[in-house]
């Protein structure tokens, strides 16, 4: 299957969902969906590469940790990311996030992400062998 991301509705916040042929691809797509809550990921230039690493006892907790690591990098470096490469080895994730400094005019950022949550959290392999990674992010 082709990798893709989308948003799903949640009362006050935003549901983000990534899908792909592998768990790694689904995590990359979920990260694009995270950016999509702020701005159009396609409009983000890959000018800076940030290394991210995290570790968690379960795949779904790892997704929350991964997204929260990105939220932290976005907030403290004032970056937005438009491309990701993720490697997962058991409970460990290593990734590179490509992006640029946020530009108020070009990116017109809609909201600041407060954090990824455990609401509607799912990381699973589907019947067709593809992977899904999703949760709600608080904005």
């Amino acid at each position: 299957m082709r990798a893709a991301w989308e948003h799903f509705p949640h009362g006050a916040d935003v549901g983000i969902r990534g899908m792909g042929p592998t768990k790694e691809a689904a995590f990359e797509q979920a990260a694009l969906a995270l950016t999509g809550a702020v701005t159009d990921p396609a409009a983000v230039r890959p000018e800076v590469a940030v290394q991210v690493a995290c570790e968690a006892p379960a795949a779904d907790v790892l997704l929350v940790d991964w997204l929260n690591a990105l939220v932290y990098e976005m907030a403290t470096r004032r970056l937005v990311f438009g491309a990701f490469t993720v490697a997962i080895d058991g409970g460990r994730l290593h990734a590179t996030a490509w992006g640029e400094t946020i530009d108020q005019v070009r990116h017109e950022p809609a909201v600041e992400i407060k954090g990824a949550t455990y609401t509607a959290l799912r990381v699973e392999e589907r019947d067709d062998g593809s992977w899904l990674a999703q949760c709600v992010v608080d904005v």
Binding site: P57, V61, V64, D65, N68, V71, Y72, A75, T76, K114, G115, A116, T117, Y118, D138
Partner: peptide, 17 residues
Amino acid sequence: RGLGHQIGTEFLKRMVL
């Protein structure tokens, strides 16, 4: 602001575990 969001994020995980 960011401080409260980060505390919320970290303690939610700590309490879950």
